[in-house]
Design a protein around this nucleic acid. Structure first.
Length: 110
DNA sequence: ATAGTGACTGGAA
DNA sequence: CTTCCAGCCACTA
């Protein structure tokens, strides 16, 4: 059984459109916990994969692709983003002004 | 209940 | 630009 928070995080991440991204903080906010950005990271890291989530569309507030301990995951994320049309600079950065997803207000009302 | 752990963040150095 | 640092927080042992 997943916790309430993690269920909401999944719902939000699952809704991110192709080619768009959301910061950890944004996901947290949409999930009803504006300051739980860190917990969002933990939630994604804990995902078992049985419930396919576009986890690669979640990046840091600076537009940078955060690197977990395992470096290759980072590469994969960059690859996936590039494949779906999200511009990723060489430094592994994404232009948030251009790719940040802005869901219509009230969509994830907790 | 307490302590430790990060796929976080924004500000300071 | 890069490090460092102190809050923040859900989750786990």
């Amino acid at each position: 059984m997943a916790t309430e928070f993690r269920s909401r995080v999944r719902a939000v991440v699952r809704a991110i459109p192709r080619g768009k991204v959301l910061t950890y903080g944004a996901v947290a906010a949409l999930a009803g916990r504006p300051r739980a950005a860190r917990a969002v990271g933990a939630a994604l890291a804990a995902e078992s994969g049985d419930d396919p989530l576009p986890w690669w569309r979640v990046i840091s507030a600076s537009g940078r692709i955060t690197s977990p301990k395992v470096h290759h995951v980072n590469r994969l994320q960059r690859q996936l983003l590039t494949d779906e049309g999200t511009g990723v600079s060489e430094g592994g950065r994404v232009d948030l002004d251009r790719h940040a997803w802005r869901p219509e207000p009230g969509r994830f009302v907790p």
